[in-house]
């Protein structure tokens, strides 16, 4: 079996499967998958419940290379059970992260220090609605294990999160996504905690109308998140663009990469709470009001304008840290 790496570079990131995304983001033919379809490690819980199973349990994990960096890639498949995290795919995710940490520690032990051009990298391409409800406790356990590992990766291994597939990063995976050092997205990227349907169901249609697509996208979509500073790079929708951006980031020193972190210190928490305070003070009803506060004009056109134009006119939330 062979995947053509050159074809993948111009392929839409949004339309690519998890495996294609993983193969395309590292250097040509360097990707080695852990527990691929041939290992047939399916979810035991779904089988009991009579739900369809998949050989890779909806996730592709493995290691590849970018220049001299060992790159650990985790790529979620949103089309299988909404990309939700269960016991098997959760373990694959958490333990690939742990492997990145272990690689860093081994390198440090052997060579005394880890040079900037050789440090391990961890990339997660999100496409998940959170924890799989069929196996909720096992999924949550794996979620907390990956959160713990992300904490340990801090200031050691750059953790790059990507959202740009069908589902986005919702529920528990919203946390995991925003804990990254760098967040990349295309125009299809979405980050949120509770999905639109659930908000409407719980609080009512007046609070959030789940049938209003425009409202959903300007609240949770990548452009709004870019203005607010949750997304650091807004990119064109090809695997190649994502790869090129990652290639440019990885050689930077760790201290520079972690400048775009959103969580992890009391100062960052304070800075984030200022947005909440601002929203309460100014009685923000819509993302557009927030965009105006940060100095944007023609806010009605922001969701529709071409990406290059958006990037040239956009004003983002200033960061202090």
């Amino acid at each position: 079996m062979k995947i053509n790496w050159e074809d993948l570079q111009s392929k839409s990131f949004y339309q690519a499967t998890a495996r294609e995304r993983a193969y395309g983001m590292v250097d040509k033919d360097t990707f080695k998958e852990f527990l691929g379809p041939r290992d047939k490690m399916t979810s035991p819980h779904l089988l009991i419940l009579g739900e369809a199973v998949e050989f890779d349990d909806g996730i592709t994990v493995g290691v590849g290379k970018i220049k001299k960096h060992p790159v650990f890639v985790i790529s979620q498949e949103g089309k299988f059970v909404g990309g939700a995290l269960g016991e098997v795919n959760g373990a694959k995710m958490a333990y690939t992260m742990k492997l990145a940490l272990k690689t860093y520690e081994k390198m440090k032990e052997k060579y005394g220090s880890v040079p900037d051009d050789k440090k391990p990298i961890c990339i997660v391409s999100f496409d998940s609605g959170g924890v799989r409800l069929h196996e909720a406790n096992a999924g949550l356990l794996m979620h907390s294990e990956s959160m713990e590992t992300i904490w340990e990766l801090q200031n050691k291994v750059p953790y790059i999160a990507i959202t740009g597939s069908t589902i986005g990063a919702y529920g528990a995976q919203g946390f995991v996504c925003l804990s990254a050092d760098v967040v990349l997205a295309n125009d299809f990227g979405r980050i949120g905690l509770t999905g639109p349907e659930v908000i409407q169901q719980e609080v009512g249609k007046d609070e959030f109308d789940a049938s209003d697509r425009a409202l959903i996208w300007r609240t949770m979509g990548a452009r709004s998140k870019y203005i607010l500073g949750d997304v650091d790079y807004l990119l064109k929708d090809t695997i190649g663009t994502f790869r090129d951006t990652i290639v440019n980031i990885v050689d930077e020193p760790m201290s520079k990469i972690s400048k775009t972190r959103k969580v992890g210190s009391p100062q960052l928490v304070e800075e984030n709470l200022e947005v909440v305070k601002l929203a309460a003070e100014k009685k923000i009803k819509d993302s557009k009001d927030l965009w105006i506060i940060y100095g944007n004009e023609n806010v009605d056109q922001i969701p529709e304008m071409p990406q290059e134009k958006f990037l040239s006119v956009v004003k983002r939330r200033p960061r202090r840290i």
Binding site: M1, K2, T17, A18, G36, P37, R38, K40, A52, V53, E54, F55, G58, E77, K79, F80
Partner: peptide
């Protein structure tokens, strides 16, 4: 020709073949 081959995602209305 190859040792093995895999295609598809188990989405709704879809299947995977190994």
């Amino acid at each position: 020709k190859d040792e093995w081959s895999h295609i598809g995602v188990v989405a709704s209305g879809d299947l995977e073949v190994l």
